[in-house]
Design a binder for these strands. Structure first.
Length: 870
RNA sequence: GCGGGCAUGGCGGAAUCGGUAGACGCAAGGGACUUAAAAUCCCUCGGCCUUAGAGCUGUCCGGGUUCAAGUCCCGGUGCCCGCACCA
């Protein structure tokens, strides 16, 4: 019998149209829906132009969850939108003389088309882009609410300024201290900018991490480290002589237990004392200026040499009345952290040690690492530490061997001691800073305030929102087009009506993505949310996206939920109940830095004597095959999802992206793997075709045979296991089980099947088609129809497995002798320990090994294993 | 430097609480069908063996706990990720 090959190019659009017409995936988020609510969301894409394989993988995963939950009786919300503001649109505008708006919406149209061809069960009626005035109008309202609730403020902050492009640069746009585009030396400038008070929530954001039990431990740890809580001692050091109006200054330390080892003081160049001293001392002023030139990139900070300027000032040592410590201004002290001043303990801090070595300062240890207590001299030779003098340790009854295990106790007891002596007080310090959201850019959400000479900073009236971006702008001159717009900028003051100027900064695009998940519930409402609706649908039950957003996006969203709760928009504090971070799609690379990189399509890859060789199609030149790396335009190792969907169809692409690798790990795209997935698509089609006629007629009464019973058991077991795997997002395991099940079904020959087998196949193939439907929905519909069903498989409830069939009548238990497997025992799974032991000891192999002796011990683990110890 | 993770065939990976290591897929090899190819179907597939066996060995390396270790503990090696002049 010949069957026609399944043609996805014809079938897929046909089924997509039917789903669309029946509005199958539109969600009722109103209280009138009585089904339990389930919200599954994948991180929305930036409309860069085309979707990539990472999107295919991400959205395929979310779609499996959405379709599975829908089949299980949930009202599923599965929306899609566009994170549409941001710099690439402005860059494109500069390069191609397009307008950011046109560029962005064109890209959205193209990518929407691509996503639709994937057959995702999305509610497109809720689609929005963050650059839609309808969306950012609500964001501006939120901003004004936050302002009202004291969650936003302005302050002066340092930025990277590109003097040629006249623009502020993000840290990653500063390369070797130069602007990435202009190549000009980047300056540090102070600008007054808007900040969200995320640091007010440091403690709460940290503590609530413990409640996120459906988040990856890794992400929780990254967030905790980012918030960076540390307890330490803040204390004042007194200057020997009052200078420039200062009688001393406060320092912060997390290691007060090393106070006895202090040998110098260091303050930041921006420290008020340093600034005051610099006014009198031109050398210090020059030093401060020089030091501030250093860029803010991680690389520069890492390699920057420790530099200090001896102010000549001395402070009194708080422990030893007869001792003083010199005060330096040093480039490695940050004004933003602690008090911008430290005491240096070179024996127990690497940076302090580097500094002390360079400037010839004493290195005084306050403890000896464990293992060296008996022989401190040995320790001195091994490490750059000077042994402690015992009288210097006695200041706080502290053991000389503060190991890491007892370290925290020592720190805590030191703080208590210092407080009792009024030397200082215990303080909690967070690393988390307030979130600066001002961007000197055009393509972002305008900050809805007006600057009036008389009234100061005035919020725009809510009835005047949105403050829309003007469209008549150009990008041929450097700088922010809003800043030089002839009319947009000049507006009357909302309070006094006098001529005033609009704020020309726009918001960081992370603001846009910090609440979009809430907007999807009521996407066209005239307030940001409807609290009742938001409270019913949030938190998002399952959020899926890349690990690269583990910190900022997720932390900002957690802050936003709290801020929105305070402003009365909802009562949800944690926006994402379940979080899943999927791995990347990686691919082999071809080429190298010198010859450049080649796309797979430009090469002919052959295997010669077991070695794969890549040759250029045009010149025949051999190209080295490089490492397997994240798909990227620069390495040219991308595969276009459109090409794959044209060749094999969306189902094949979805299936392959879900099989093979566990979803949280990277998956390698290989042509062979894609072909393998496609072969399976055709194999399913052949299987269903070969049985469709025989099983599309209703069941007849018949006796169960051993063959049909075995089939039923396999069917119900698969159904149970696939459901469990999907619940756990173990898509690769669900797929392995479906391959296995397909092997079982394929082994049954239609021409030899009796009534009972046909009946079992009717059930089994039905289950199978329903099980593949979340992953390969088009093929599943086509098969479903071919089985004579008039319903849509996408609208079918998930079948229920029968627990009786899902367990076995007999199981095979391995029998070990002295821990090595020697035999199998087929037995009733409910057999007692005694029965299992008796049966095991009667096995020929066991009798042979026993040689007439009694076993020393027999361990029986029912349903698992028997171990006979001789 | 600090914090975290991972290590299983030629490859991706599976193995629930410590209980048959290598499911499933890919690649490879052999065979069938065919004038031929593609497609399809069948078989083999961790290593070792003058004893081919219910044989020995085997989950990065070295120890340990246990009737039993890929899984737990101690020590090491390698790779990956995150953060970082954070006091």
């Amino acid at each position: 019998m010949t069957t026609e090959r399944y043609n996805p190019r014809e079938a897929e659009p046909r089924w997509q149209k039917i789903w669309d017409e029946q509005k199958l995936f539109e969600t009722d988020t109103t209280p009138s829906s009585t089904k339990p609510a389930y919200y599954v969301l994948e991180m929305f894409p930036y409309p860069s132009g085309r979707i990539h394989m990472g999107h295919v993988r991400n959205y395929a995963m979310g779609d499996v969850v959405a379709r599975y939950k829908r089949a299980n009786g949930f009202e599923v919300l599965h929306p899609m939108g566009w994170d549409a503001f941001g710099m690439p649109a402005e860059n494109a505008a500069m390069q191609n003389k397009t307008h950011p708006k046109g560029w962005t919406y064109d890209n959205i149209a193209a990518m929407r088309q691509q996503l639709k061809s994937m057959g995702l069960s999305l509610d497109w009626a809720r689609e929005f882009a963050t650059c839609d005035p309808e969306y950012y109008a609500q964001q501006q309202k939120l901003f004004l609410d936050f302002l009202e609730h004291d969650l936003v403020y302005r302050k002066s902050a340092k930025v990277n300024w590109d003097p040629v492009d006249m623009t502020v640069l993000a840290n990653e746009q500063v390369i070797d201290g130069k602007g990435w585009r202009s190549g000009a030396d980047v300056e540090q400038r102070e600008l007054t900018q808007w900040f969200f008070k995320i640091s007010d929530f440091s403690e709460e954001l940290l503590e609530a991490i413990d409640t996120l039990d459906e988040w990856p431990a890794k992400v929780k740890l990254m967030q905790a480290n980012w918030i960076g809580k540390s307890r330490g001692l803040q204390m004042k050091f007194d200057l020997v002589e009052e200078t420039a109006g200062f009688d001393g200054f406060e320092i912060f330390t997390t290691r007060p237990d090393t106070l006895a080892g202090a040998s110098f003081m260091a303050i930041a160049p921006e420290h008020p004392l340093a600034i005051a001293l610099a006014e009198e001392d031109s050398d210090l002023a020059a030093f401060n200026k020089e030091v501030r030139k250093t860029g803010t990139s991680a690389e520069e900070l890492e390699t920057a040499e420790k530099l200090g300027f001896d102010t000549g000032l001395k402070v009194k040592h708080p422990l030893y009345k007869d001792q003083t410590l010199p005060v330096f201004v040093a480039n490695f002290i940050l004004m933003d952290y602690g008090t911008g001043a430290i005491f240096g303990c070179p024996a127990h801090d690497q940076r302090d040690h580097d500094f002390a070595t360079k400037y010839g300062l004493p290195i005084i240890a306050t403890f000896v690492p464990s293992g060296y207590e008996e022989d401190p001299d040995k320790f001195v030779e091994a490490e750059p530490f000077v042994p402690l003098k015992s009288e210097k340790v006695d200041w706080i009854n502290q053991p000389a061997n503060v190991s890491t295990a007892t370290g925290q106790d020592a720190i805590d007891s030191t703080i208590d001691w210092a407080e009792s002596k009024n030397l200082g007080e215990g303080k909690v310090q967070f690393r988390l800073r307030d979130w600066g959201i001002s961007r000197q850019r055009y393509w972002g959400c305008p900050i809805p305030v007006v600057h009036c000479e008389k009234c100061g900073v005035v919020p725009e009236k809510k009835e005047n929102l949105p403050v829309t971006l003007p469209e008549d702008v150009t990008f041929d001159i450097p700088g922010n087009p809003l800043d030089r717009h002839p009319t947009w900028r000049d507006v009357p003051c909302p309070v006094c009506g006098a001529p005033a100027k609009r704020e020309t900064d726009t918001m960081d695009t992370f603001v846009d993505s910090s609440w979009y998940f809430a907007r999807f519930i009521t996407p066209h409402n005239e307030t940001p949310t409807i609290p009742d609706h938001a409270n019913r649908w949030l938190p998002v039950d399952q959020y899926i996206g890349g690990i690269e957003h583990a910190i900022l996006h997720l932390l900002y969203s957690r802050f936003f939920s709290r801020a929105m709760s305070i402003a009365g928009h909802m009562d949800i504090k944690e926006p994402f109940k379940g979080l899943f971070t999927q791995g990347m799609v990686v691919h082999e690379t071809y080429g190298n830095k010198d010859m450049g990189w080649f796309q797979p399509a430009e090469l002919n890859i052959d295997e010669v004597d077991g070695t794969r060789i890549a040759k250029r199609l045009d010149t025949g030149e051999i190209v080295p095959i490089g490492g397997i790396e994240k798909m990227s335009k620069s390495k040219r190792n991308t595969v276009d999802p459109d090409d794959i969907m044209q060749t094999y169809g969306a189902d094949t692409a979805r299936w392959f992206m879900l099989s093979d690798s566990p979803p949280d790990r990277d998956v390698e795209w290989t042509d062979a793997g894609a072909e393998g997935a496609h072969r399976f698509v055709q194999r399913i089609w052949r299987l269903v075709q070969s049985w469709s006629e025989m099983i599309s007629t209703p069941d007849l009464q018949c006796e169960e045979t051993s063959e049909s019973l075995a089939l039923r058991k396999a069917s119900h077991k698969t159904l149970m296991a696939v459901g469990e795997d999907i619940e756990k997002l173990a898509f690769n395991r669900a797929i392995a089980r479906l391959y296995e099940f397909c092997n079982v079904l394929s082994a049954v020959k239609p021409d030899k099947a009796d009534k009972s087998v046909i009946s079992a196949m009717r059930e089994g193939i039905g289950f199978f088609v329903q099980c593949i439907a979340p992953m390969m929905p088009h093929l599943a519909e086509e098969c479903w129809k071919s089985l004579g069903k008039t319903s849509l498989v996408s609208a079918m409830p998930w079948p229920k497995f029968n627990a009786e069939f899902a367990v076995d009548d007999t199981i095979v238990m391995p029998i070990q002798i002295n821990g090595k497997k020697r035999a199998d025992l087929e037995i009733d799974p409910n057999a007692s320990k005694e029965e299992i032991e008796a049966a095991s000891l009667q096995l020929d192999v066991v009798v042979k090994y026993l040689e007439g002796r009694d076993p020393k011990k027999v361990i029986v683990v029912p349903k698992r294993i028997v171990n006979v110890v001789i």
